[in-house]
């Protein structure tokens, strides 16, 4: 299997004014596989947005290479091909919707690619169905909720038939309902449609559902692994001012006090299962409960 995106020893520096070079990325390497859901977490200025922009040639590395399949992003002749393959969704839902109706906006990408009208229609309908926005074709963007706008933006990318979607903090400006909507949508795209997802976020509980979590700090990859591997290092995360899900924190405290939990739970269900197993194994269940 070939990676969709291959980031190879990439460094990126830009002129931060006052003749200061700001090193936003330092020797970052990373592969995104087909259908993989990767969460990237880190603070503002950790380099995660810069990394994202490298994945579809909005930025090109100062050193190192980024390949989208076999296409090097340094090679300008591939740029449109690359952007079609790796789509991008941004933080502010208002500032990425171009058209005055939902369907026209979703059609914007395919129109730029020169897709013929009948096919655009099919793609628009299909993309809106995938993000659960069928029925809003004629709606004006400013009348939609934040979560709906972000789903329209995702549909606009899907209509270009990408192999990978990079979402740069798509939930930062949304309320919990909007966040859930967006997260559910991207998870489904990865699992059902085989589209690779790179989900950049501040929210730890969104990273729990990823296949892989990458923690960025000061332009480098500080931690990387499955959510369980990453979240079972609370000391490291705390040093980076990042928190773990509350249940994971609780499990850590309980384990430190001598409670025997066999794994590091990440969700309420997992934690409840583990507690159930533990208590189920205890011989005096009813007696314990009377305390």
């Amino acid at each position: 299997m070939k990676p969709v995106v291959h980031v190879e020893n990439v460094s990126y520096a830009y002129d931060g004014g006052n003749q200061e070079q700001v090193e936003a990325l330092l020797d970052v390497s990373l592969k995104i596989w087909p259908g993989e859901f990767v969460a990237v977490i880190g603070h503002n200025g950790s380099g995660k947005s810069t990394l994202a922009k490298h994945m579809n040639a909005l930025l090109v590395p100062t050193r190192g290479n980024v390949y989208v399949f076999e296409m090097n992003t340094q090679d300008e002749s591939w740029v449109w091909e690359i952007r079609q393959t790796v789509g991008m969704v941004f933080q502010n839902p208002d500032n990425q919707i171009v058209a005055t109706t939902v369907e026209e906006d979703v059609a914007f990408g395919p129109e730029n690619l020169g897709v013929e009208p009948g096919e655009i229609r099919r793609r628009v309908d299909e993309a809106l169905a995938l993000v659960d926005m069928t029925g809003y074709e004629k709606s004006a963007p400013h009348m939609l909720s934040g979560g709906q706008k972000q789903r329209v933006a995702i549909a606009g990318v899907i209509a270009m038939r990408p192999r990978c979607i990079v979402l740069d903090e798509p939930t930062a400006m949304l309320d919990p309902v909007g966040r859930t909507e967006v997260l559910r949508t991207v998870r489904r795209l990865a699992s059902d449609e085989g589209i690779s997802i790179v989900h950049i976020t501040h929210f730890m509980n969104e990273a729990v559902y990823a296949d892989r979590v990458i923690v960025m700090e000061e332009g480098r990859i500080a931690l990387s692994g499955t959510p369980r591997e990453v979240f079972s290092q609370p000391a490291t995360l705390r040093k980076l001012d990042l928190d773990v899900p509350q249940v994971t924190e609780l499990a850590g405290q309980l384990q430190a006090a001598g409670v025997a939990l066999s794994r590091c739970p990440l969700t309420v269900e997992e934690m409840a299962d583990d507690i159930g197993t533990l208590l189920g194994r205890g011989p005096c269940r009813s007696e314990l409960h009377s305390h």
């Binding site: 952007r83 990425q96 914007f108 990408g109 730029n112």
Partner: peptide, 8 residues
């Protein structure tokens, strides 16, 4: 930037 990312 968003328009460019969508191949405009």
């Amino acid at each position: 930037v968003a328009m460019e990312a969508r191949c405009y």
